[in-house]
Measured scan of single mutants.
Amino acid sequence: MDVFMKGLSKAKEGVVAAAEKTKQGVAEAAGKTKEGVLYVGSKTKEGVVHGVATVAEKTKEQVTNVGGAVVTGVTAVAQKTVEGAGSIAAATGFVKKDQLGKNEEGAPQEGILEDMPVDPDNEAYEMPSEEGYQDYEPEA
């Protein structure tokens, strides 16, 4: 019985440690998101679009440190934060509304985080759909 109880105690310690790591990862992701939003706020009209992409990228980098179902929630929060940063930029006159959601080359930025393969159960990952990809044929 002692062996059984000791095993359960060790398992509990492992769960607590994993929860603490997840909590730490979420806190880091939130900190990076805040950094990115402050970065966007300090940019001029020309830099705002690039700044919004930076927020998304920093958040995406930190999301990889967070495991399990938390990833889905962090990704949703990050996307809403990026959308909010863009709205703030438009409201303050840093950028025109028609410039939001495009990178410096004018290509749409939507789907940055949505296409990231995420499995809350950590069982399997699927690649994003290939609808947006084109076949590449090298020139002879």
Rank of each mutant, 00 (worst) to 15 (best):
G84Q: 11
Q99E: 06
M5K: 10
D121K: 11
T22H: 02
G25H: 15
A85K: 02
A30L: 13
V40I: 11
V95T: 11
V77L: 14
K43C: 10
P128V: 04
L38E: 03
S87M: 13
N103A: 05
V118W: 05
E28H: 07
G68V: 11
G84T: 13
A17T: 11
K97C: 12
K80F: 06
A90Q: 11
E83Q: 10
P117D: 06
P138G: 12
G36Y: 07
E130F: 09
A53H: 11
Q79I: 08
Q79N: 07
V82Y: 11
G73A: 15
G36K: 15
L113Y: 09
E114R: 12
T54L: 14
Q24H: 10
I88M: 09
M5E: 00
G47I: 09
P128Q: 07
G132N: 14
Y39M: 10
S9T: 02
A140V: 11
S42K: 13
V40A: 03
A19H: 05
Q134R: 12
I88D: 04
E61N: 06
E139D: 08
D135M: 09
M1G: 00
F94I: 07
V37H: 00
E105K: 02
G106T: 06
A89G: 07
G84E: 06
L113A: 12
Q24I: 13
N103P: 11
T81G: 05
T22C: 06
G106C: 09
D121V: 04
V70A: 03
E123S: 10
A76P: 01
D2E: 01
G31T: 07
V3I: 03
P138C: 10
T81F: 14
D121S: 11
V66P: 01
K97P: 11
Q134H: 04
L8Y: 01
E114G: 11
Y125A: 03
E28L: 07
T81R: 03
G111M: 15
E139N: 11
Y133I: 02
V48L: 13
E123G: 10
Q79V: 07
E46L: 03
V37T: 01
Y136W: 12
E110R: 09
E110F: 07
G68Y: 01
P128D: 12
D115W: 06
V63C: 05
N103H: 07
A53D: 02
A76K: 13
G14L: 14
E35C: 12
K43D: 00
V26T: 01
K6I: 11
V77K: 02
S42F: 13
A124E: 13
K34N: 01
G51P: 01
K23L: 13
D2K: 02
V52P: 01
T44W: 14
K43V: 14
K34D: 00
V37P: 00
L38S: 03
M1A: 00
V66G: 02
K102Q: 02
Q134M: 11
F94H: 04
D98W: 12
K10Y: 08
M5W: 06
T92L: 13
G67P: 02
T33C: 03
A124V: 13
E35S: 06
A53E: 08
E46P: 02
E104G: 08
T59Q: 01
V82A: 11
E13H: 02
T64H: 13
E110M: 07
G93K: 04
D119Y: 03
E46V: 08
G47V: 11
E104C: 02
G73T: 14
Q109I: 10
G106V: 06
K32R: 10
A29V: 08
L8C: 01
E57R: 05
G41Y: 11
V74H: 01
G93D: 05
G93M: 03
L100M: 07
A29E: 00
E126G: 12
N65I: 13
A124C: 14
G47C: 07
A27D: 01
A90I: 05
S129G: 08
K43M: 15
G68S: 04
M116I: 08
G7F: 06
V95N: 10
T22W: 15
K45F: 04
Q99F: 10
T54G: 08
K58N: 05
